[in-house]
Design a protein around this nucleic acid. Structure first.
Lengths: 233, 233
DNA sequence: CAAAAATGAATGAGCATACATTCAATTTAT
DNA sequence: ATAAATTGAATGTATGCTCATTCATTTTTG
């Protein structure tokens, strides 16, 4: 296939293209367009899956639901994901990837001081896009299956480990900078991660009385008490 | 069995009982024994349900599993609970009741000072009986379905509200007693509850590296920073 | 013996998956 | 350029399996 000779002279232009960009480039372009479409479909199906999980729970969600929500036909999920199990795994991965990319971007864009970065990360966790009712529902739905699905656990564990490392390092720098005595970085990082997740649970269980500003205030209050020099306690 | 009648001897004693305590009392006693048996079976099935949820998740658990785990027959769950849905609701209620009774007992038995009570409650959350891998798996399994099952949400919400009230009141007293300025009771109570739940999530996701003493240390460190006079910061 | 509890085979609904078919877009051939 | 052939995405019906629920029968209890 590569460099297959043209049988006819009228193909000159095409031949020139082959010469100019190479057969592989053309093949790649072709493939790209196809995979791009494929990825868009997959993304569309994953979005539909999240919607369905939020509405019916993992145990109540069916592939027919997902297909209908995506506005596509019955067999479409198996066509793109082979199995329901795989769809769910990919959905969790997508959710985790999405969070991670926001995390990394936040880290980049925040001011250079560790305290600025730490605050920015905490604020991220309570931004509407991150802790929308739907997103929370999906996170908790997967966490609810973690014990019985080692794969889910591994995905979550790897992600958590990364965030924890980053936050611990920031805490380390803050502690060194402020010469704080009564706190160690691991405890602080663990406590901060725990608070985020626990406050998310409150949002899930008492959505009526939950308020993102109050949640952020609780985190702030913690930071002020533990790192008073850096967070104006 | 208590009071099992001897077939060989005349039934005279029984008749005397009828006379002595009256037919209604005996009927009541009989009913009690029966309902006691009934309740025991129900409890047995609920325990089996928790085991199954921990092992297979809510979506993977079947009534056949539950019956097998309880060492009973296929139809037994429907006999005692009418439906799977009801079994699950009763299981969540049982879990919540169990926690609440431990909570109340802890509150009673702890020393009279609010700080003692608060510490005792926090320690309760990390006792092996409360945060065993199985119990955590079941809690998270139900939380994972909260968004799609209003009933679950209501049960959890009512429970949380109660705990939060108690803890907030304790914090109030501690704040008044120590004349602390930079903290309000609601924030502190919210943060403490959040930390517990968040640390439970860590236990679920990273059971290998999680340690109940470290978790308790993180809580302690928070208490020391926020209420230094009461928790020796 | 009568009533309650328990059994387990039978039923049927709901669902994931398989697959034959359709359709649109792209490539090849004349 | 046009027709023919090929590709592969998408469809929707069909299949078979899993599982909650039912119920006629058996066992236990008082």
């Amino acid at each position: 296939m590569i460099g297959a000779p043209d049988r006819r002279s009228p193909r000159r232009n095409r031949s020139q293209n082959y010469v100019k960009y190479g057969a592989m480039a053309v093949a790649a372009a072709k493939r790209d367009r196809r995979t791009a479409a494929r990825d868009a479909r997959r993304r569309q199906l994953i979005d539909a899956t999240m919607k369905c999980i939020a509405k019916k729970g993992i145990s109540g969600m069916t592939l027919a639901d997902v297909a209908r929500t995506a506005g596509l036909s019955q067999g479409i999920v198996n066509l793109h994901f082979d199995s329901k199990d795989n769809l769910l795994r990919q959905t969790l991965s997508a959710l985790a990837d999405e969070y991670r990319s926001q995390f990394d971007r936040t880290l980049e864009q925040a001011g250079p001081a560790p305290a600025d970065k730490l605050l920015a990360l905490m604020q991220l966790d309570f931004r509407p896009t991150v802790c929308s009712p739907q997103k929370l529902a999906v996170w908790f739905a997967f966490w609810g299956e973690v014990k019985s699905r080692p794969t889910y656990r591994r995905i979550c564990d790897a992600a958590d480990r990364y965030y924890d490392d980053v936050v611990r390092q920031l805490c380390d720098e803050i502690i060194a900078d402020g010469a704080y005595q009564n706190i160690n970085a691991a405890d602080a990082a663990g406590a901060l991660a725990a608070m985020t997740n626990g406050l998310w649970l409150s949002a899930l269980i008492s959505p009526g009385s939950w308020d993102r500003n109050e949640a952020m205030a609780a985190v702030n209050s913690y930071l002020c008490h533990v790192f008073p020099q850096h967070f104006g306690g």
